[in-house]
Design a protein around this nucleic acid. Structure first.
Ligand SMILES: [Mn+2]
Ligand SMILES: [Mn+2]
Ligand SMILES: [Mn+2]
Ligand SMILES: [Mn+2]
Lengths: 159, 159
DNA sequence: ACCAAATTGTAGACAAGGCTACATTACAAG
DNA sequence: CTTGTAATGTAGCCTTGTCTACAATTTGGT
């Protein structure tokens, strides 16, 4: 029990199969969070624009049945991301709101990057809806730096 | 029945909620294909390097139990992507092989793009494992063009 | 105040993807 | 050729995410 109590070794020295397994595991986790993230972002959107988020609207925007939406919203509540009383619409908790903000930023950054690389807006928007859930903070930062640089390059070329 | 038999109208003129619903739907589809894509790519890998793809190896590389791997492999067979007899390892059909090649290309391109944007390799590799399944052909092309351009830019700067 | 329509909720089914525990088969060492 | 071990397969359970069908509630128009 003396060595490796925590095992903080990073990829390089580990068996390659373990590294790969870890990557796949991360992807599975991201997968399972993705749906919640989309719901929260969407609810936040509805709340911001219309002042309320009704399950029906959520369902229509997501393209699922209202029963499905309600069930997932129940899960949101169970996981402490949303609140709301029966027949009274959905609201976000502090955590939910924070997550929504994070997702909104991600979403926009991913779309902007794709567009900057020449992807048509509509396609960028569609791809981003999936990609956003798999972009780590490090990658997100890289995106944002690239966007800044390419913006300033464009600016300086104008002179 | 005269109008809109096929409804080929593209996003612009459609109700925005429908557009959004369509995007989410695409993402859901991609999600459900993602696992098969990873399996097929991995099997192809094992086949290429070791000559055989045993369920146990697949399981270990993916970080799931062998029972899970076997079940998913059954699904691969059911969907015409893989073959193989009991106790005899897994092989890929023509379609399976083609999909594996497509995924390998995607995977590499996504990793290369991320690295080109300054993401550390290990993180790029991890993120790509999720992103690759949500990158449309149009976006993929944009990635590859960006990589070409940035490569040639680097080359010409050397002169 | 009433009623019809919209919204919300509930029930029950199904497939996918994960797990553990147990059963079977193959293989290699002796 | 026996036998122990590794690999493979099977069974049964759980959760998530989807649906349809039906029930209950709320709400807006008269
Ligand atoms: Mn999304
Ligand atoms: Mn989004
Ligand atoms: Mn992958
Ligand atoms: Mn991959």
């Amino acid at each position: 029990m003396s060595r490796n109590t925590k095992d903080k070794r990073t990829a390089a020295e580990l068996p390659p199969e373990l590294t790969q397994a870890r990557r796949f595991g991360k992807t599975r986790t991201a997968q399972s969070r993705a749906l919640l993230e989309d719901y929260v972002e969407l609810i936040s959107d509805l709340l911001a624009t219309g002042g309320e988020a009704r399950p029906t609207d959520v369902a229509r925007r997501l393209g699922v049945s209202h029963a499905t939406a309600i069930k997932t919203i129940t899960r949101l509540k169970r996981e402490g991301l949303a609140t709301g009383l029966p027949y009274r619409g959905v609201f976000l908790t502090e955590t939910g709101h924070a997550l929504a903000e994070r997702m909104r930023t991600r979403h926009r950054l991913v779309v902007n990057l794709l567009v900057a690389l020449g992807v048509p807006t509509e396609i960028a928007e569609a791809d981003a809806e999936g990609i956003e859930h798999h972009v780590s903070d490090a990658t997100l930062k890289a995106f944002s730096q690239f966007l800044q640089i390419s913006a300033s390059t464009r600016a300086s070329r104008k002179s």
